[in-house]
Amino acid sequence: MALVTPCRAAPEEIQVYMDEMDQPGHFGLDTHINDVTAGTPTDDYPGQQQALHRLRITPEFSYGITSDLEAGLYLPLATLDGQGRLDPGGVKTRLKFIAPRRPGQNWWWGANFEIGHVNHKLDINPWNAELKGIVGTRLGKWTLAENANVDFVVSGPAAHSPEVEFDTRVAYAMTRKVSLGIESYNGTGTFAHFGAVRDSDQAIYAVADLDLGHWALNLGVGHGYGTNADRTIVKAIVSLPLERIMGRRNAVD
């Protein structure tokens, strides 16, 4: 276990972080949805939950602390099986920072830290964390973004060297409301065995982003390769300002 880390199923959040932030004092809600439609069942440890044909639904609540700092809460990390049974699997929290920009600056940098607790069926280690470096730029209709992720075990029976992954997004704005692009998620091994690309999970997605006014939609279809047991993954992120949802509910009441 010290030399080989388990293959991981599609995570609850398949996203390249950019510079989007809630305004100070405002709440947001992103609902992450993904489904592995084709792949190979895995058995990395006894009691592991299979990702194949299991829908993952994760609400992510966020709050703008300042113009540069945002907090987030993933609750619950849930899955839905073929019989429609909902299974809450854990909780995760995050803190995201995007550095202030000068007027006219078209690039950004920042960082995100996450820590969470999951059930044994989702991970053999109950407590895990991630530190994410964020950089990106907009050049005309093009958007380019890169995340450098370090995932490490906080506590658990199968501790291992921190894993390193690089996530990339290249997108082109077809119109003011629609953009198309490619996202890639590429494991590069651990600190102890950095560069072991062929022995790590890899995935590439064709994505579309739709600006629908007060809410937004990210859609993607991906292919896993390398050690990734998930061969075809469908993902969606539905983004809404939480105040608008609560306002509608109050209006109905």
Rank of each mutant, 00 (worst) to 15 (best):
42 T>H: 07
42 T>L: 11
43 D>I: 01
44 D>Y: 03
44 D>G: 13
45 Y>G: 05
45 Y>K: 12
46 P>I: 13
46 P>F: 15
47 G>F: 10
48 Q>T: 09
49 Q>M: 13
50 Q>E: 11
51 A>F: 02
51 A>W: 01
51 A>Y: 02
53 H>W: 10
54 R>I: 13
56 R>T: 10
57 I>D: 11
58 T>N: 14
59 P>R: 09
60 E>H: 09
60 E>K: 08
61 F>I: 09
61 F>K: 01
63 Y>L: 04
63 Y>A: 08
65 I>G: 10
65 I>W: 14
66 T>I: 01
66 T>H: 14
66 T>K: 14
67 S>G: 14
68 D>M: 00
68 D>G: 00
70 E>Q: 14
70 E>S: 02
70 E>T: 00
71 A>I: 12
72 G>T: 06
73 L>G: 10
73 L>A: 11
76 P>G: 11
77 L>W: 01
78 A>N: 11
80 L>P: 05
80 L>F: 01
81 D>R: 07
81 D>Q: 08
81 D>K: 09
82 G>R: 10
82 G>H: 06
82 G>I: 00
83 Q>V: 02
85 R>G: 07
86 L>A: 12
87 D>I: 08
88 P>Y: 02
89 G>S: 13
91 V>Q: 06
91 V>H: 00
94 R>K: 13
96 K>L: 07
97 F>L: 03
100 P>Y: 01
101 R>Y: 01
101 R>T: 06
102 R>M: 08
102 R>L: 11
104 G>F: 05
105 Q>V: 06
105 Q>K: 07
105 Q>C: 05
106 N>W: 00
106 N>S: 15
107 W>K: 01
107 W>D: 14
108 W>T: 09
109 W>Y: 15
111 A>T: 13
111 A>D: 08
112 N>R: 15
112 N>L: 15
112 N>E: 15
113 F>T: 06
113 F>N: 05
113 F>S: 04
116 G>P: 10
116 G>T: 08
118 V>D: 11
118 V>Y: 00
118 V>M: 06
119 N>I: 03
119 N>E: 11
120 H>Q: 14
121 K>P: 00
122 L>C: 07
122 L>H: 10
123 D>V: 06
